[in-house]
Write a protein that binds this DNA or RNA. Structure first.
Lengths: 250, 250
DNA sequence: CGGCATGCTTGATCCAGATCATGGCCAGCG
DNA sequence: CGCTGGCCATGATCTGGATCAAGCATGCCG
């Protein structure tokens, strides 16, 4: 499989922005359009962007305990965050795709609480946190955006509480992955999972074998087609129904 | 059991603060002491406090979908937040004790994403969110505090990812509850759980029967003494060891 | 006081998913 | 080429905790 710097969907180029625009996927991008005011401040924000990368699969972007001095916006590729205990077992907390912001939770005690690892080849924008914090005091929308990012992460984390059947978890995972792609203009039903089965299993708190078997059952029931890491969602409504046990919660 | 407005530890009175001080438990309290500057702004914050309550056990403080217009600081008692699906099943997300701040995650889409319910008799401080957001732009420490509160909630939520043996979850839960009490000057080993077993079970994603049985095993092993909702942690080190599977993650 | 409800415990049984074990597939590489 | 090492699939077995089903304590209220 091609593992290139623009992720696994090579037909769309990376939009790196320019002197006057943010990368098209960036969370901060929407600050520009809806309200035109305080452009000077946004210009400052724009100026403190630092493009970093590429990070190749397995490379660490920051580690648990590192000094928290910046947040990162994913520009291309997929990043996972994880905890690791001293016996080497890891727990994946989340996957981040282009447009997502990583690292804000380091603010609690000035250290990153988790490790961020590139899943495939990753390009990032780096924002110095002191600078962005200062700026957010002057730009209410920026402050609000940062709060919203954290609230969203929190909601995602809470979603996973409770125990649900393996197939429901998997259906939910696939649908959400599709949604992410769809938000960025790709197909929401024909998707490529950049991470190995083991990572999916870990993230969903299942054994890798269970992921395999559950995928098989979904395939036998005609809900999806799977070949390697390529997945086609054949009957999204049925998948939604399956995932209902999770997504219904309001 | 006495269910009074100061929670289950009647020997300490509620500190409601006065014209010049925050309630002693309040998250915002620590803004005052360490740095003396911008007292005018803090005075504003103080002035917009609205004491609300009491809420009695089972009363709802806000509900999923309600317009998000305020955050609440717990002054006395215990609050739980929960999601509910249309079939009436609920999932408890967190318990909040005096000093904790509730509701910040409503910022994402201007609606509270969960329902907050009083576990016992609860007194709160209410802060209008528009006011506090405006103020936080002028008081960097306030902004930082709000970020830290969310980061903390996020970390707590992430902690629960992964599946751990029932006894480890319970040991972790008891130790954390003790720590909360200890932080506020109570015993960290002699504790009262204000919520029914079913709530503990739900929070830990276990069946109530499993909570009972696990408690029994902990008692048989001499790690705790349990009588009703009174729990004594007899061998905290052993409990820590048991909970290690969870807490070790860094 | 008795009766009923609620919450807690305990026992018996069952099952989803973990674990153990094996074999296939494909890519990279000497 | 054939070898090696990841990764994935699938079968067989085991088990922790869910579920089903009683009992038991406590407290409320007529």
């Amino acid at each position: 499989m091609l593992d290139n710097a623009v992720g696994l969907w090579p037909e769309k180029p990376v939009d790196d922005g320019d002197a006057r625009h943010f990368c098209s996927t960036c969370v901060f991008g929407r600050l520009c359009l809806p309200r035109g005011y305080d452009k000077a401040a946004l210009h400052e924000l724009h100026c403190l962007i630092e493009h970093v990368g590429p990070f190749h699969a397995g490379a660490e972007i920051f580690r648990t305990g590192d000094a928290f001095d910046a947040v990162f916006s994913v520009r291309a590729g997929v990043v996972k965050t994880q905890l690791r205990d001293e016996r080497g077992r890891e727990q994946i907390l989340a996957f981040y795709t282009p447009g997502d912001l990583i690292g804000l939770d380091g603010i609690e005690d000035d250290r990153y609480p988790c490790t961020a690892v590139a899943v495939d080849t990753v390009m990032l924008c780096r924002f110095s946190f002191p600078a962005i914090a200062t700026l957010s005091a002057r730009v209410p929308d920026l402050q609000r955006t940062l709060f919203a990012v954290m609230a969203r992460d929190l909601r995602m984390a809470q979603w996973h509480k409770g125990d649900f059947p393996a197939e429901a978890r998997l259906a939910d995972f696939l649908l959400r992955w599709g949604q992410r792609l769809a938000q960025r203009g790709y197909s929401g039903t024909q998707l490529t999972l950049p991470m190995p089965r083991g990572d999916i299993a870990n993230y969903l708190s299942l054994a890798p074998e269970t992921v395999s078997r559950s995928l098989r059952r979904l395939m036998d029931d005609g809900l999806v087609e799977v070949r390697g890491r390529e997945v086609k969602l054949c009957q999204p409504p049925a998948l939604v129904e399956l995932a209902r046990a999770i997504t219904d919660r309001a």
